[in-house]
Amino acid sequence: MSLQAALRLTLGRLELDAFIEARAGETVALVGRNGAGKTTLLLALAGLVALERGRVLLDGEVLDDTSTGLHVPTEQRRVGLLFQDNLLFQHMSIVENVAFGLRTGSRSKREARTLAQRWLERMDLAAYADERPSSLSGGQAQRVGLARALAADPMLLLLDEPLAAIDAMARAPLRRSLIAHLGRFEGSRIVVTHDPVEAVLLGDRMMVLEDGRVIQSGTAEELRRRPGSPYVAELFGLNLWRGTSRGGFVTLESGMELVVPEAPAGAVLVSVSPRAVALHGAQPEGSPRNTWQGVVASVEPDHDVVRVRLEGVVPVTALVTAAAASELGLVEGARAWAAIKATEIVAYPA
């Protein structure tokens, strides 16, 4: 039950041109900024948005092929879609919601109800069967939405930011529940998210969409080690600069030169963890040669550390302890020196 889709379409300002692949049982985490085309991509796979050019192949069956004009309508696709705001039918009871996709098949009303009830039991929601969706909490409603999508027996499951509308306290339990139920689903899944933690926990593989194009794809670890764009670097909280490497030096776009012994020659991306960036009150002496001065632009507490943004020749983010931050007098507008050891710098072809 694998998916291969080449999608090309224009919708308003968005120009989507993406190829997406997912094996049976695989979860692809689709990440990207707002407006990057994530939701549109899902809608196109579901057949709810028309393709200009492309081909969608699910489990060997062609769902869309613009070269032959073939288009399988949404209701015949067996593609399940879970929306961010669950979209339960408000005029139906919860068990009727879950039974909806079962009844559109050839099942009788009673049979559909029995099966739906079983799905609710699996989700620990059997007690709510005859209630209206409005009586559920956000997390419960999202589980009913998942049960409704799964009950229709899809071959591909699309989840559009399933946790985004859930309040922080309920998010972790719902995430565990999602992982458990997705694990039992045999088809491919695509989860749209903008939370790297979610992408790592839910997805086997990440795909990054920017301006309608897939700019990077791989495991979370691969992306974290070598972020291919400022967005990916931001996602993992890393510093990323573009530059040109020659003979152990990388010249950044700003003109600044970094010592990077193991950089491949040519155009490179340079990534540095904010934990590897040391801040000093005065110009540091000794081994780290990669130092420059900047002005503190923002200071944000981040759990047990402080995230300091330094603007200067090269803008950089550093993570320092709260104690260090106050010792160095790191407040907005203060001057500080950033220093990075050459061995902490990862450079790779752009």
Partner: peptide, 18 residues
């Protein structure tokens, strides 16, 4: 009316008439 409710119904196999 939020047209996405109709989209959701279509992904659950409902024809336009249903």
């Amino acid at each position: 009316l939020d047209i996405r409710y109709e989209d959701a119904a279509a992904t659950l196999g409902a024809s336009a008439w249903t």
